[in-house]
Design a protein around this nucleic acid. Structure first.
Lengths: 241, 241
DNA sequence: TCAAAAGTGTTCGTAGTACACCCATGA
DNA sequence: TCATGGGTGTACTACGAACACTTTTGA
């Protein structure tokens, strides 16, 4: 079994990922409960190998949790306040509870390394939630999708990171046409609209929204989707390119 | 005299600043010739103290070069490819030319530290160029204002960093009203327009530009400025807040 | 025949663009 | 009186917002 080896990583520099998914008309974020302590939740994060690009490090973190390659991924902000340390969480642990961390294959040195102050590069990722089977990482107890508006208290400034990620997503959604990464391969116009409403947390006018999206010229209209409901069947669309 | 002490800094993490100034209708960037080697130019950069926020580190780098506090400053991108190292520049130097670096107060260890691979946080800053007396930093031979379109070859990916900074500046100019940081306290509308034209590298229609800027509601109209030229005297403006 | 939801068209107001005109200034 | 550059007004266009109307579907 592979062990966590801090000496392979750049010290005091980390990557934290805000992985967005969309389900049941809700925008969700993947969070993980960390393996030490009780009920500490965090964003999926990781460290950067000494000979690894930062984007590659983020991809590795994502792949570890989602098993997906080829994910839309973008850095959006660096968090570098001096109070960014896990000292409270990790630092005191060796004295208080020696057996819990040694039995999990971590040494005192590992804890000291982890309890340093870290500068963290924030990434956000957009995934088709149905293609993901969440998988826990090396330092995770478990991982879970949580609605963005119902995030629990996360460690350090991770709640702030998630908020900033949402703002970055909103800013880039229109100009970069990245929202379709959150949808399945085919979808109705209503589904696109509900996605946008979930992201911006505000309603859009149906007809104007349809016009705006179609005018982008990036959707292909496919056959109609008969839902069995007593109303006109909507078209299915596919994202081009 | 204070000596460069790598052990005080976070390893493999740096800050690079693109300091924008405006003069003679040209957008300029402050670059520095580094103290080692021949004719190696770089963006003003520095490192982050182990107990220093990243914004504070960038401020320190700026203050070192410009003697200004209270500068508009914003991170815009992290550069973290694996090929980001000064190995070519610093790594071979100890063997080839021992006396040049020791006489300047640097040790072999310093060079090894510097020749590592670095992840660098890019900041851009906007200053009133007339308020700046460029001052060289600890690792600088000299510093100089250079027109952005006439930058020489810089070390590593610093040319790319400067280009990305310009794009970030353009993106934020309108929505954040930051351009006035580049101008003196009072200015004419023509000067604002010429600044915008320098930044976007394209002409604007005079009347529409005036309307757009005044509609922002952030300028105060002062007395007229009589230049002695044979034409109507323009108003002077001041940026509010 | 009806309700529900989809698709499409029309109008209105605003913001940006292009064009035109007048004014102040000093030679 | 003239050239130069500054200030302002008007018409055209594009885009989004608000409103209205028609069509399809299965009960």
């Amino acid at each position: 079994m592979k062990k966590f080896q801090p000496q392979n990583f750049i010290a005091q520099l980390s990557v934290d990922c805000v992985i967005f998914g969309y389900k049941d008309k809700k925008l969700k974020v993947l969070i993980s409960k960390i393996v030490f302590g009780n009920d500490f939740w965090s964003l999926p994060g990781g460290f950067i190998l000494k000979n690894e690009g930062i984007d590659d490090a983020a991809k590795r973190v994502l792949q570890e949790r989602t098993s997906l390659t080829d994910i839309f991924l973008e850095q959006f902000h660096v968090f570098g306040n001096t109070d960014r340390s896990n000292n409270d969480l990790f630092g005191k642990m060796p004295e208080t509870n020696d057996e819990t961390f040694t039995e999990k294959g971590f040494s005192k040195n590992d804890f000291e390394w982890l309890s340093n102050r870290f500068v963290s590069i924030g990434y956000y990722a957009l995934v088709d939630i149905d293609k993901v089977k969440p998988k826990k990482g090396e330092l995770d107890e478990c991982v879970e999708w949580v609605e963005i508006s119902e995030l629990p208290k996360l460690i350090m400034d991770h709640n702030l990171i998630a908020q900033k990620a949402l703002l970055a997503l909103r800013q880039n959604l229109d100009q970069k046409l990245i929202g379709f990464n959150l949808l399945p391969d085919t979808f109705t116009m209503r589904e696109v609209q509900e996605l946008y409403e979930a992201i911006y947390d505000k309603p859009f006018a149906r007809n104007n929204f349809q016009k705006k999206i179609l005018d982008l010229g990036v959707l292909e209209r496919l056959e109609k989707k008969f839902t069995g409901a007593a109303n006109k069947a909507p078209y299915l669309y596919r994202f081009l390119k």
